[in-house]
Design a protein around this nucleic acid. Structure first.
Length: 570
DNA sequence: ACGTAATGTACCC
DNA sequence: TGGGTACCCTTACG
């Protein structure tokens, strides 16, 4: 076999040594004999490695090589691992390093800004960066000369008064189930009539029903789906069951009392036929008037299911680019025949349900990247709010106006990360002005030495950050959030845990707070941590929360925080 | 204090 | 068009 071929089949071996990747991208000064050694070794190996070697052999080689390296170190010989020179883990260049410095993340200056995606500055100096208080100096506005480039600058301007100075923000954790799910939470839904029931879906396909007023009344139904629950929706005419769309290709109708689910549709009746055939269901909504469940798959198709007969109606319609995932569907709350869809083809589209055929969308709302969610405003249905992976929220103020471009784009950190449930900005269904939205934040802020990821309340009519809420115990990112349809309550799904937030003034003082309102689930472990995310007490959910409780009390008095930018002196 | 697995999207050819 | 691969702030676990 030609050495060249072999060489290309050996990248792993070479890459075992940190230095090689460094060398490839930067001119190293301090390489010398070691490099010689390496080359010799490579040659030697190439010689002895005969044709027909397969991956297994490669693996073995890898192992041998590692062992050799260790031996060499032990004997004091020049180890295979070369220079320990620090390079940036992002761009692999020397001279700077990206990563956490304490609780503050330093961006790689060679890359476009992690927040607004514009080149020339980093998150720290980004004009869109949320200003902070508590002694943290707001970012200097160094790039204002280019301000025209920025679609919308969410800078704090003292001259703009908050629209809702009296707005009630649920900013204090009222109760929680820690490690309730065994995989991360993917969606949340409040019960339509019972004010205290929260439904949660997870990546494993399980569905949780939690009565957060009784706190300990909770249930996780394990046999609902075999993988990710992407969306859940109630039928407004029936509140004892909920529909769920899953990546297993089925829609289920789950009885909340028993957990027994009925499958309405299965797109993979023949089981696994390879990834190019496996259909997954993402976007879903219920058209109550017509008794329909609308659901869309990962290949761009929309399906309609009759909720009375539980039968699929008609043929699937291609509503987004063929082969692309449709992640969101929303029927207009006033005129449910008006459908809003969004997906991985970077578009949100408006459709007339009465005339559904491929290519017949009324409008196509262009985005720069994948659109995680698109919702009509909850009351009038005349506004549209989308969350896109280009770190921008987009707002169309009126569906009757000019839809060619959004009325506003708000830069906000909610990047895609394959390990996180995609962020979705959610309307506050109680806000009569339809201007308040909630969305978790990806990038962290250094709060007293802890990197926390707040949940942001944004006035989408101005771009103003109305409040950012966080809890020192929640160190994980909170991509899933939902505001209660009637109460001043925020539900958060963060990793495997659920949190219920209420306004501080309505909550009891922390000192008197009943520790049993924080339930710890999950496997027993030896380690104990002060963080919710790492929480690991024991299996009990009967209120044994003493160690945690102590921790909480020993925390700084200001346990829960709301930062309101309007208070920031600038 | 590590290392690692899980595993979506973009972008390349 | 499709497969291969890189990838910036994850999280939990061993």
């Amino acid at each position: 076999m030609a050495p060249q071929t072999r060489r290309t089949s050996f990248p792993k071996v070479v890459i075992e040594r940190d230095s090689d990747s460094e060398r490839s991208s930067s001119e190293d000064e301090e390489e010398g004999e070691e490099d010689e050694d390496n080359r010799e070794e490579e040659e030697a190996e190439r010689g002895e490695n005969e044709e027909g070697e397969e991956e297994e052999a490669l693996e073995n080689k890898n192992r041998e090589r590692k062992a050799e390296g260790l031996d060499a170190k032990k004997k004091g010989k020049a180890p295979i691992t070369l220079s320990l020179k620090k390079v940036c883990k992002v761009c692999k260049k020397a001279g700077h390093e990206a990563g956490f410095k304490g609780a503050t993340y330093i961006d790689c200056p060679m890359k476009p800004c992690f927040l607004c995606k514009m080149p020339g500055h980093t998150t720290m100096t980004c004009p869109h960066r949320v200003a902070t208080e508590h002694g943290v100096i707001p970012a200097p506005r160094r790039n204002t000369r280019n301000s025209l480039e920025y679609v919308f600058e969410r800078q704090l301007r003292p001259d703009i008064l908050p629209i809702k100075p009296t707005f009630v923000i649920p900013d204090q954790v009222n109760c929680a189930v820690i490690r309730y799910h065994s995989r991360r939470v993917t969606c949340l839904e409040f019960h339509p009539t019972n004010n205290n029931i929260l439904l949660s879906g997870d990546k494993k396909g399980q569905v949780g029903v939690w009565d957060f007023a009784k706190v300990h009344e909770k249930m996780v139904y394990g046999n609902v789906h075999s993988c990710i629950v992407n969306n859940m929706r109630f039928n407004s005419t029936k509140d004892d069951s909920v529909y769920a769309a899953s990546s297993d290709g089925t829609i289920s109708c789950i009885d909340l009392e028993t957990g027994i689910s009925l499958s309405l549709m299965n797109l993979n009746p023949d089981g696994w036929q390879g990834p190019s055939n496996w259909r997954m269901l993402y976007g879903m909504d219920v058209h109550s008037e017509k008794g329909l469940v609308l659901v869309a798959d990962n290949f761009g198709f929309l399906y309609l299911v009759d909720t009375r007969s539980n039968n699929k109606i008609g043929e699937a319609v291609l509503i987004h680019k063929k082969g692309s995932k449709v992640v969101g569907l929303h029927c207009n709350p006033v005129q449910p025949d008006l459908l809003l869809s969004c997906g991985n083809d970077h578009f949100a589209r408006i459709w007339d349900m009465r005339r559904m055929e491929a290519g017949s969308s009324l409008y196509a709302l262009a985005h720069k990247r994948v659109v995680n969610s698109a919702y009509f405003s909850p009351l009038s249905g005349s506004k549209i709010l989308t969350t896109s992976q280009d770190n921008r929220l987009r707002i169309w103020d009126s569906i009757f106006g000019d839809l060619d471009s959004p009325s506003r784009e708000i830069v906000h950190s909610h990047d895609f990360n394959r390990h996180l449930t995609p962020f979705r900005a959610e309307w506050d269904p109680k806000d009569p002005s339809e201007s308040l939205a909630v969305i978790g934040r990806y990038i962290s802020e250094n709060y007293n030495g802890a990197a926390l990821h707040p949940i942001d309340f944004i006035d989408i009519s101005t771009g103003r950050l109305v409040a950012e809420v966080m809890d020192p115990n929640i160190t994980t990112i909170s991509p899933v959030n939902k505001l209660h349809p009637r109460d001043d309550v925020l539900a958060t799904g963060s990793s495997r845990s659920l949190f219920i937030w209420r306004p501080k003034e309505k909550s009891e003082p922390v000192e008197q707070k009943d520790e049993r309102r924080i339930i710890v689930c999950g496997r027993a472990e030896k380690k104990r941590s002060r963080k919710f995310g790492d929480e690991s007490d024991d299996d009990s959910d009967d209120g044994k929360f003493t160690s945690k409780g102590t921790k909480l009390k020993s925390n700084k008095p200001e346990r829960n925080l709301t930062r309101c930018p309007s208070k920031v002196k600038r």
